[in-house]
Write a protein that binds this DNA or RNA. Structure first.
Length: 837
RNA sequence: GCUCCUGUAGCCCAAUCGGCAGAGGCAGACGGCUUAAACCCGUCACAGUGUGGGUUCGAUUCCCACCAGGAGCACCA
């Protein structure tokens, strides 16, 4: 055995083996091996601690792109790392396969949306397998499968039973291009998030989820995510939910003909300025406006309403546009001053925030100031601005003025005190109350499109809205294709008359099915739960199994979902918790938003012609080199510019690593203790550090450490013993294992070259010999006045006093001290001494 | 306009508790291998950390102001 250790193999190797391996052949070679071994299936048998690695599932539009390449590479490093660390890893994959692009493609190509959808899914699935993401394919799901959307419908019905899904008429966002309504979250800067068309408002009856009743909990439970989710996402959600504390105040109102009617309730965050409310404004499209308007003003109001509705969201959003409005001919009474104040309608007041009406306090609110100036309304300051203040409305802190009546005086109080005092007064006088308002609106979930989950409701002439009984789910989509799907402003489902006409589940009479489908964000709000027990048929998931895996240990995905999917799936999680179907309160422990892949400084786009194709990159450099490039590019949350990167450099490194394994001649059972200690130290330190780096998700630095190890091993080979040193074998094995997280094909090639059976992916994390982590000696820097003057080689455990003596005795240090008295010596053993003179 | 993040070598990025500014890579120069080139191997150079101040024995790191770039929000009463 000992004779086999010596030189004979190296010479043979040089002449017969190529200096590189064929990356593409390796891809062909290992895929079937892995598929046969099936090493990535989650066991869920309790033999190991469980860990759930979740990544946002793809939408099947065409093949995977560079963005997928990045997030999947990063995500897979974590999943594979946990597996080596001995966890039972759940790493599932599926498709978010309902949605508009498939429907639009179906119209273009005159076919059924499923054709496009499932063809793309197959293309992507093939690419994912080639990309060697360690998914458990046995759990694959598609949200457009009846087996899946049956349970989306089932969940909708449970929400409805709890009063969390309901229908109401309201002014809603309408995309004229996609011919469907949109949720608030899907309107960005006044345009459709998906197609960029300018959104308009229409009054329609639609389905909503009552997410607003979870506003406070969505806010409060962020404390559980603090430090584990990116601060940016939490900030955006906090901002979106938009909690504001204030009070309702009731203003007595008389009809145009002088009769008293129900008071006008407003929400304000500044109840302390109530004395300064000199007029009121209601949203023009609110029912309130139509009720209050006098006969003389009706024509003017109606003209204004039409103008408002014609205005697009973009125009309404422009901050500097003049404040328009119309007097309604009605008056309210300021409860503090008893003054009669006019009521106006103006489009700077929103119908769906607060009560749709405000008290206007021009002295302290710039918008009201602008309006007052434009329409010649009185302005009264109720907070004293500072002397140097030269603005118009004053919104800052200061003492109250002009705020006294027979019952109460706020004068002289600061804003906070005044707020508390007036709120008390409002409450005792039954004129209002303290309250909290949220910017968050209910989630509009119905869509007038075909390729989505049908809403399982039947409308009966006698019974009204009736839920489809659970045992009749799923309500499957009728077969429609091509021109049937052309948007007509109503749901395409309405045209499927045979499907629409049904009998009422309650009374058996004639009834019509609801013809809207659900927003696809509903589908994606619970898919991560379905993964846990994919075949389960007694509910959307098996709660017992789900509670074993949830919450997901990490969630990878793009930041563009910060207030969409990431808010919705938190909402679902909380509702399911309240339904007793889920233990946890939050869906994932940690979240990483990967950056975008850009090229030449800009987002890739067809019009700029700077697109990079993932498949082409893989064809050129191989899967491993592309994955490595993505992981090594920088911190995961940073944008990566493909033009700054070098997939060819990555490939070069992988070949170098592979050559290391090829050059190993020490036998599998060589006694590693006999190996080069210097290299062994590097090897063990690398394992230790890479472990720490991966725990803190610093993937790029971890790769750099692996590169260092390869360099160190190469140096050892070149320096003396060649590949026969047992330490070289040890380092090559460690490289193969660490590299298996990033470059699975290369790692497998190395593992085989080292004489091992596949697969390296299921080995266990190399054990670190603590003794080898301690350096033989360390360099101690000796500073004088903070400047480095000398370096000393000292034992790592040197004590403070000894080190101080050594440092002061050093001739370079003495020269720098130059005879001056030593005032202070700071010693940080073993690495630094600073002498202060 | 408001909020948040980021500024380190020609470029991408390290420096974990305030302690030697450089781990890794790209691009580059030189040398070796080669008939030659590519590949491969080796060696080398390049910044004092956006700017100005402060705290400290010591600041890339902490604090303040400013500049630049990026992201988010923007009539929410």
């Amino acid at each position: 055995m000992s004779t086999a250790k010596t030189s004979e193999p190296t010479e043979v190797a040089e002449h017969t083996e190529p200096a590189t391996y064929d990356v593409h052949a390796a891809q062909e070679k290992w895929r079937p091996v892995w598929e046969a071994l099936d090493p990535f299936r989650a066991l869920d048998d309790g033999s190991k601690p469980r860990r759930y690695a979740l990544t946002m599932f793809p939408y099947p539009s065409g093949d995977l792109h560079m963005g997928h390449g990045e997030v999947l590479a990063l995500h897979d490093v974590l999943a594979r790392y946990w597996r080596l660390r001995g966890y039972d890893v759940l790493n599932p994959i599926g498709w978010d396969s309902f949605g508009l692009p498939a429907e639009n493609a179906a119209i273009r190509r005159d076919e059924h949306p499923a054709v496009y959808t499932y063809a793309n899914i197959e293309v992507q699935a093939e690419s994912l397998r080639r990309y060697a993401v360690s998914f458990d394919w046995s759990r694959r799901l598609h949200t457009s499968d009846p087996d899946y959307y049956r349970w989306t419908q089932w969940l909708f019905l449970r929400f409805r039973e709890k009063g969390l899904a309901y229908r109401k008429g309201s002014y809603v966002n309408w995309c004229p291009n996609d011919q469907t309504v949109l949720a608030n979250e899907q309107v960005v800067g006044g345009v459709c998030d998906r197609c960029g068309a300018v959104v308009i408002k229409r009054e329609l009856t639609q389905w909503y989820f009552r997410i607003t009743s979870y506003a406070q909990r969505l806010l409060d439970d962020m404390s559980l995510l603090e430090g584990c989710w990116p601060e940016r996402v939490l900030a955006m959600q906090r901002n979106w939910i938009g909690r504001s504390e204030g009070a309702f105040a009731d203003f007595a109102v008389e009809d145009p003909d002088g009769r008293p009617r129900e008071p006008l309730r407003v929400f304000t965050t500044r109840p302390d300025t109530l004395f300064g409310a000199t007029f009121m404004v209601v949203a023009p499209e609110s029912a309130l406006a139509a009720e209050l308007v006098s006969d003389e003003q009706r024509a003017a109001y109606e003209a204004y309403l039409i103008d408002t509705q014609r205005a697009t969201e973009i125009e309404r959003l422009a901050t500097d546009r003049p404040k328009t409005g119309v007097f309604l001919g009605a008056y309210a009474t300021n409860p503090t001053t008893g003054q009669r104040v006019p009521i106006w309608a103006a489009d700077y007041v929103l119908a769906d925030y607060g009560t749709g009406a405000i008290m206007a306090v021009p002295g302290q609110d710039q918008r009201d100031w602008d309006f007052a100036v434009a329409h010649d309304l009185p302005i009264v300051r109720t907070v004293q601005p500072p002397d140097e203040f030269d603005g118009e409305a004053y919104a800052g802190d200061g003492v109250a003025i002009n705020s006294t009546n027979d019952e109460i005086s706020l004068d002289g109080l600061g804003v906070d005190e005044a707020k508390a005092r007036i709120a008390e007064w409002l409450e005792t006088a039954a004129l209002g109350e303290r309250t909290v308002n949220y910017r968050l609106r209910d989630w509009l979930l119905s869509r007038q499109r075909y390729w989505g989950c049908p809403i399982p409701i039947v409308h009966c002439t006698d019974c009204g809205e009736v839920a489809v009984p659970d045992d009749q789910l799923p309500v499957e989509l009728p077969y429609l294709s091509g021109t049937d799907l052309i948007p007509k402003g109503t749901s395409p489902l309405a045209a499927a008359t045979d499907w629409v006409q049904t009998s009422c589940p309650r009374c058996g009479g004639d009834a019509q099915r609801d013809t809207d489908t659900m927003d696809t964000f509903v589908d994606s709000s619970w898919y991560f739960l379905r993964y846990c027990s994919p075949g389960y048929d007694r509910g959307p998931y098996d709660p017992e199994v789900v509670n074993r895996w949830m919450p997901a240990a990490n969630y990878f995905g793009g930041a563009e979902h910060a207030v969409l999917h990431l808010l919705y799936f938190r909402f679902f999680t909380k509702v399911l918790h309240d339904l007793g179907m889920l233990d946890g309160l939050e869906p994932t422990e940690s979240l990483i938003n990967q950056g975008q892949v850009i090229n030449l400084g800009r987002a890739m786009s067809k019009s700029l012609g700077n697109g990079v194709d993932l498949r082409e990159q893989i064809d050129t450099y191989g899967v491993d080199a592309v994955r490595l490039t993505m992981v090594f590019a920088g911190p995961p949350e940073d944008d990566v510019d493909w033009a700054d990167l070098s997939p060819s450099g990555s490939l070069r490194f992988l070949q170098r690593a592979w050559r290391l394994a090829r050059d190993v001649t020490a036998p599998v059972d060589a006694d590693v203790a006999t190996g080069d200690v210097g290299l062994r130290r590097v090897t063990h330190r690398t394992v230790h550090e890479v472990g720490q780096l991966l725990e803190s998700r610093r993937f790029n630095v971890a790769v750099a450490r692996i590169m260092e190890l390869v360099n160190a091993a190469r140096k050892t080979i070149d320096a003396g013993p060649g590949g026969s040193d047992a330490a070289v074998r040890e380092s090559a094995e460690v490289v193969a294992q660490l590299l298996s997280l990033v470059a699975p094909y290369t790692a497998e090639e190395m593992w085989a070259a080292l004489g091992h059976q596949p697969t390296v992916a299921t080995t266990s994390w190399p054990e670190v010999d603590e003794a080898l982590l301690v350096a033989e000696s360390v360099t101690c820097v000796v500073q004088v006045q903070g400047k480095v003057r000398a370096r000393l080689d000292v034992p790592p455990d040197v004590d403070t006093a000894t080190l101080e003596q050594l440092a002061l005795a050093d001739e370079h240090a003495q020269r720098a001290i130059d005879g001056r008295p030593v005032l202070r010596v700071i010693v940080r053993a073993p690495s630094l001494v600073n002498v202060v003179v």
